[in-house]
Write a protein that binds this DNA or RNA. Sequence first.
DNA 1: ATGACCCGCTTTTTT
DNA 2: AGCGGGTCAT
Length: 756
Amino acid sequence: MTEALNPGQKKAVTSHRGPMAVIAGPGSGKTRVMTHRIADLVSAGVSPGSILAITFTNKAADEMLRRTIALLGPGRGALFPTSGFLGPSSLDLDEGTPVLRTFHSFCARLLRRHLHRIEPYSGRFSIYDTADQQQLIGTILKELKLDRTSFPPRATLSRISHWKNHMTSPEQASEESTTFREKELARIFFRYQELLEERDAADFDDLLILVVRLLREHPDVLERLRARFEYVMIDEFQDTNRPQYLMAKLLAEEHRNLCVTGDPDQSIYSWRGASPDNFLRFREDFPEHIVITLDQNYRSTPQILEVAGRLAGSEFGERKLFTDNPDGAEVRVQQLRDERAEAAQIADHIESWQEEGCAASEIAILYRVNSLSRVFEEEFVRRRILYSVVGGMSFYERKEVKDILAYLRVARSTRDDVALQRIINVPARGIGKVSIERFEDAARDAGRSLGEHLRCLDGHDEIRGKAKKGLAQLRDVIETLSENVGAPLSAQVAVAIEASGYLSHLERSEPESWQERERNLEELVAAATETQEILSSVAARAQNDPEYEEIDPMSLFLERIALVTDAEMRTEEKGQVSLMTLHAAKGLEFDRVIIAGVEESLIPHSRHGEAAGVEEERRLLYVGVTRAREQLLMTHASWRRRFQEREPRIPSSFLVELEGTSIVFERDQALVKSSSTWGQTNWHRSDPGDDEDDGLHPGCWIRHEILGRGVIVRAQGHGASKRISVRFEECGEKQLVVGYAPVTPISPPDEEWEPC
DNA sequence: ATGACCCGCTTTTTT
DNA sequence: AGCGGGTCAT
Ligand SMILES: Nc1ncnc2c1ncn2[C@@H]1O[C@H](COP(=O)(O)OP(=O)(O)OP(=O)(O)O)[C@@H](O)[C@H]1O
């Protein structure tokens, strides 16, 4: 198998030693460089096992491994089996396989082996996901007597995560805090970290931070890893954070073979502590590095790139892209009446594209927030369009699945109190709020975890009667599960469902949906079986490796569930349209892309983080636009249902900036009617020079086709992109873009209508 | 003291 | 819609 490389790519692929940064725009072949470079290293005789390649998602890792094997050809590729996430469990061994993983999965695997060296953790540490974290915060708020309205768990966690991603310790956070609120947050942070340690648990941020600590505090581990991974590569470098960079630096600063690829213009995860400033740090720490820029786009038509370029504007995109690709269809922007009309229109497009012969798997619908997927799903089900939603509410986030997983976690570790709290009275065993509180207090006073305290239940009697019986019952269930830890994974899962009496609980408490939920549990058993099979085959292959060290299967099973989102596990079936957020679309490409809900307050989102601001929103749309190969369509609705209300919507301000490109703007027919200020002409009247009096000044009255009558309170800008704030009689103040909003100046209403 | 039931708030993006 | 927090019947 061979694939073309341009001179820049070739240089990047064949420069094996020394630091290198490949900085290039979308579709310029960065990912292709990564795969070819791995293959080239191996062809040059480098041991595959000495290559560490970090990708942004697990899916990208699998894909890269697959492509590398294909490049090497059947003889060579067979050298390293496709083991994916569950692959060889001990990273220090198995020289035959390159390690292709995300930072998080790489770290988790490393910590399984080495975390016992950091007090007070063990190699069986639990990984806490967002739900676990939130539960922990809930516990802490109760303990510190803070209320959840002033410290919403979500926001609290994001503050804590921000500190952690900047490697700020709770002590430092407390010192730096000036306001009362910040100080309280720092207190929560302190306790949060304390409890994680007590519970032998790591959250996602800890996985990274603990590895940095491990490498700093244990030189022998660092030495071994440096010797093992002689070539380090990182993809999507613009979206790495502090701990990730430190880790890369620690691994590579001696041999200096660090290759990073990325595109600052596609940096969209600053809210997670990521920053393209890592490129600057790289330049300082590896001053002898070479920079390779690629500026030819192989993916998209000139029409799509024109839109991308305009979106980038002068803000970014100094790396101008050019393409030799032939002209394609015009980029279109469609306005629809409401979200249902939008979904119907999109379904129409998909049907006609499929008739043209476009494969469903080459079509993607992208949106800013997951909640938008629902209306599409409903429409697609009705129209029998096959689709698959990437992300959103995943299988492993279902309540029933999380409950059973909690049983498995409790059986594995007496320190995992979040898991125990989750199932202490599920199914109901007569242990109520008050009993739980007493039990927790007693455990804390005794200096024990809940799990330990439950074990020696008979030794104390702060709880009696029904609740005590319930606790004893729970203890016995956990006992049964613990005795089973050696059994095959699927058997362990089955026993958890069985011993807990979960099925009858479901039937009792979920009269509507118990059947579906039961099916989910069956699927969980099946997932365990599958994991077991993969692990057995990995173990079989490693048999002649005397140093092969097996990590317990349940740890790996739970780890995979925590770190590999279910979208990534789902085997991609052909013939399905993909639905996902703009974030999830990063790094992917499709023949035809529809970006839905391109409306103000959605993109740019009304609650974008303050640090990165609207510019990150702009980059996000830029990422979405540049996913398309042949055809791009953006839609926006004039009305959108949110919660129970129907809200009027105005088009994204980013669309206004796209006037004057080859984009075709189309309005919903039902809205066109006869309004004189609304028409094609508006689209081309953005020149501030020929500003005629449009009758739209503060104090003037207007009529909006949908919103009714209102008075202008503010006006900004000129021509079609002029923005006005209008106080409507019916629905309060709204912002409108003159070029989009169907507004007509009217004379002020008669005085007699005014209240006197 | 427990648990069934109702109400109000919430929804940005994710490893 | 889904969860925590409240109320009320057992
Ligand atoms: N030298 C080349 N000749 C022809 N096609 C190429 C070349 N290099 C890359 N491509 C193709 O261009 C497309 C984009 O490449 P790739 O995904 O590697 O880009 P990228 O830089 O990683 O993009 P992004 O930053 O948007 O994720 C792919 O379909 C790839 O096969």
